[in-house]
Design a protein around this nucleic acid. Structure first.
Lengths: 199, 199
DNA sequence: TACCAACCTTACGAAAATAGTATAAATAGA
DNA sequence: TCTATTTATACTATTTTCGTAAGGTTGGTA
């Protein structure tokens, strides 16, 4: 897939992204992607080896954008709390534009598959950057001192999984509220607010 | 499917309802339904001829409940506007409990298929009752006089289709707002409010 | 005990959907 | 015109799904 993407290829990517987000990867066929994009199947195989490669490409676009957004926010001269709030908002808009089947699947993806392995690796990059960001914030006193970064990272990963969990989603007819609640527990629970004494 | 439903069969119905609502009928396999319900495939075929029969059964449950809810509200000594508001609320809760793929599909279902034909017929019953309800309301002066019931019914049908249209849904990140807007146009636009003069 | 109904597992062949390829023709821009 | 891109069609291979058969397990009941 090292080729430059033409108009037709972009149509395929967009069509696939919409379908994957809505239905998940395994429930969408290549022909369906082509039909939605009004592109012939041969053109699909001209640009992508198979469905997995296309899915990886889409995951990359999104995860790259996520990393980029994290970096942008981190570069701003604002409090950690605001950086996170900004990024939360951004994430919400991207991941919820039409369902979240794609990443529910991606996060649970079997690591033995090509797709699963790739997503895990890519996610790790974002993970590392976040970790560093939190570390810096902790040093500046914006995050509770003494908390292990590894623990915070683990909880951050859990946060995503919790949000993708159907049982949790059932509890919230309003997805935005769910998002806020879970993020609040994670982020604002670790903020070093003035009156707090270390536990 | 005239058999009484046992516990296992109910598990199948519930599991299928969830999956159908979320992914639509065609994207869900019988085995998947069985797995989710923790019921063997043979038991499935013991109660249902095929996926269509199960889908019809589920559609019946919901459409019967809808008709029932309409009747209940109609029996109350309240203004037409409130009857409709109650029913709207009920409908919203049912149809949006986890996506609406099932009825998007059902409403567009090919009439040549067994499923499509059945759903159309069943919908017609609800349709007839609504028609009568509107007619009564019109006679009582609660709906604008002069409006053809057939036109109102047609618009009512359109309303459902509009709500199921992906393009329209895209316009509304907030589905509740979409629902309100569309229903308001349909229902409250036809209400005989005090100051209005007949057009 | 013997029996029965509901359900299970395993296995299987048939049918349908999907994947992926080959070929030749159409299109559109340099 | 030459070239690159895209398309349509047609085909085979693979995978998924369907639907059935056979035999075993469980738990309640006469």
């Amino acid at each position: 897939m090292s080729k430059e993407l033409t108009e037709k290829a972009k149509l395929l990517v967009n069509s696939a992204r919409e379908l994957f987000f809505k239905h998940g990867i395994k429930r969408v066929s290549i022909e369906e992607i082509c039909q939605k994009a009004n592109v012939s199947k041969m053109t699909f195989y001209n640009y992508f080896k198979d469905k997995d490669e296309l899915a990886i490409h889409i995951a990359d676009i999104i995860l790259d954008a996520e990393l980029n957004n994290l970096m942008e926010n981190d570069a701003k001269p604002i409090h950690f709390e605001e950086k996170i709030r900004n990024h939360m908002l951004w994430s919400y808009q991207i991941y919820n534009e039409s369902g979240n089947e794609f990443f529910s699947e991606a996060l649970d993806a079997d690591e033995s598959t090509v797709f699963g392995k790739h997503v895990k690796e890519k996610t790790l990059e974002v993970f590392k950057f976040s970790k560093n960001m939190i570390l810096k914030a902790q040093k500046k006193g914006e995050v509770k001192p003494g908390l292990k970064i590894e623990l915070i990272m683990f909880l951050g990963d859990m946060t995503k999984k919790i949000m993708a969990n159907p049982e949790i989603q059932k509890l919230y007819p309003d997805k935005i509220q769910m998002f806020k609640d879970i993020c609040n527990i994670f982020y604002y629970g670790i903020i070093n607010s003035e009156g707090d004494k270390p536990f």
